[in-house]
C-alpha cells in the first residue's frame, strides 16, 4: 500500500514539475513550488513508514514549516517588492476594500 502511495505522490510531483516548467504566470510557478514542497513532505512521511524509521516524521514536519515560510516570503517579494515596506503596502488591499 505504501508503495502505491509513494508512486502516486511521485506522479503528482511530476505534474507539479511540469506546471513549474510550463507555467505561464508567476503565480502558476509559485503554486507549483508550494505543491512540490507539500509532496516532498508527504513522500518523506511515506518513506518513514516504508523504511520503518518513524523519526523521519519530525523532519517532514520541519520541511512543512520551511515550505510554508518560504512561500510566504516569495509571495511577499513578488507582490510587495521588498520586505521592509510591508506595513504600508500590506494595508493597501484592505484600504481599497473599505473605500
Amino acid at each position: 500500500m505504501f508503495i502505491v502511495v509513494s508512486l502516486a505522490i511521485l506522479i503528482t510531483m511530476g505534474l507539479a514539475l511540469a506546471r513549474a516548467i510550463a507555467g505561464p504566470t508567476v503565480y502558476d510557478r509559485i503554486a507549483a513550488v508550494n505543491l512540490f514542497g507539500t509532496k516532498t513532505v508527504l513522500l518523506i512521511a511515506v518513506w518513514a513508514f516504508i523504511s520503518g524509521r518513524t523519526d523521519l516524521l519530525d523532519i517532514a514536519l520541519v520541511y512543512a514549516l520551511i515550505n510554508f515560510i518560504g512561500v510566504i516570503a516569495v509571495l511577499k517579494l513578488v507582490t510587495v517588492g521588498d520586505f521592509h515596506s510591508s506595513s504600508v503596502d500590506e494595508t493597501d488591499p484592505a484600504k481599497a476594500d473599505t473605500e
Binding site: 513549474a20 516548467i21 510557478r29 507549483a32 513550488v33 512540490f36 516532498t40 523521519l56 523532519i59 520541519v62
Partner: peptide, 30 residues
C-alpha cells in the same frame, strides 16, 4: 522561473538525501 526551479531542485535533492539516510544533510539542503 529559473529561481523557482532551483527551489524544486533543492527539494528533490533533499528528498534524495532522506532516502539515502543522510538526514542532517537533507535538512541543511532544505
Amino acid at each position: 522561473a529559473s529561481i523557482m526551479l532551483f527551489g524544486i531542485f533543492s527539494l528533490l535533492s533533499a528528498t534524495l538525501f532522506v532516502v539515502m539516510d543522510a538526514l542532517d544533510v537533507a535538512f541543511t539542503e532544505a
